[in-house]
């Protein structure tokens, strides 16, 4: 045959594996936490920061960040906002339903770069979801890390995710959690202002701090600026980026940021490698 490509293909590349929806935990008006496990009991085998393609036959597929840590296997969790066809349909499922899963895909958080250092997590809104596995992982292995700070900003108090956990983190000595909402609200007695307004009072040991930033696209440039002002080096700033995706395997072209595929080279990137990419931030 004329073809130059003689490689072995995985016939099942686009075929999801069935998982069972074990638990549905409502979070906010728009977001719900789904706990799943593969029906064959196999672990998902992911790294914090990776994502899966969630598949509902007849509706479609959507890329969703994994919300749980590997140490919680064989269960895994997805925290999903109702925005499109697939995510809306997912919200209509009852416990016991089957969901198709492809993945895990992408590159997760670089744990080897975080270990032994102070970790500053900056999360905006639903950005807390992709970083939650990392938070769990650090809390599970707390002695491996230095100071651990989480800044979590949201527009309104009712948008707060994982309330029980946040209450635990607040009262724990293992992590310094600081919360903020964008504008004053009658039900809120805490800090008010966008997440960057938490930076001035932040005491950091800049050379040993690794910043992990996940939030809406608008947030990145401002948080990066604050991190740099605090003296954190560009190669110590780690971000997770969201893009449109169809295949998850570096073929469909939708998730491209300049020459990088978010589904293969990301979604977690080092700011140092993104600086030259004008489409990134």
């Amino acid at each position: 045959m004329a073809q130059a490509c003689q490689c072995e293909a995985d016939r099942e590349l686009y075929v999801p594996k069935l998982a069972v929806l074990d638990k549905v935990v409502p979070q906010t008006e728009l977001e719900t936490l789904f706990q799943l496990r593969f029906e064959d009991g196999a672990p998902l085998g992911h790294q914090p920061g990776q994502f899966v393609q969630v598949c509902l036959p007849g509706i479609g597929e959507a890329p969703i960040s994994i919300a749980s840590a590997p140490c919680e296997e064989p269960h895994f969790e997805l925290c999903v906002r109702k925005v499109g066809n697939v995510t809306r349909a997912l919200h209509n499922l009852a416990e016991g339903a089957y969901v198709g899963i492809r993945g895990p895909f992408g590159r997760g958080f670089p744990d080897d770069q975080l270990k032994g250092n102070d970790v500053l997590v900056v999360a905006g809104g639903i950005g807390l979801v992709p970083v939650r596995p990392l938070i769990h992982h650090i809390l599970c292995n707390r002695p491996d890390y230095g100071n651990f700070t989480i800044l979590y900003g949201m527009k309104r108090p009712e948008e707060m995710l994982f309330r029980d956990e946040i209450a635990e983190w607040e009262s724990s000595n293992a992590v310094d959690l600081q919360l903020t909402i964008d504008r004053p609200h009658p039900d809120w007695s805490g800090h008010v202002g966008v997440v960057t307004t938490l930076f001035p009072s932040l005491e950091l040991d800049a050379p040993r701090t690794r910043a992990v930033i996940v939030g809406p696209p608008i947030m990145y440039q401002f948080v990066i600026l604050e991190c740099r002002n605090k003296g954190i080096a560009d190669e110590h700033i780690i971000l997770s980026l969201e893009r449109h995706m169809k295949c998850g395997v570096g073929k469909c072209g939708h998730c491209q940021i300049n020459g990088k595929y978010v589904c293969q080279d990301g979604p977690v990137f080092n700011y140092h490698e993104l600086k030259q990419l004008w489409e990134a931030i």
Partner: peptide, 23 residues
């Protein structure tokens, strides 16, 4: 397209069709 679609994760549909095409 052989290069791009067979890079890392090999696209099974592309490979199957290509294998049966003579040019």
């Amino acid at each position: 397209l052989d290069k791009a679609l067979c890079d890392q994760k090999v696209d099974p549909n592309w490979v199957a069709r290509r294998a049966q095409i003579r040019i």
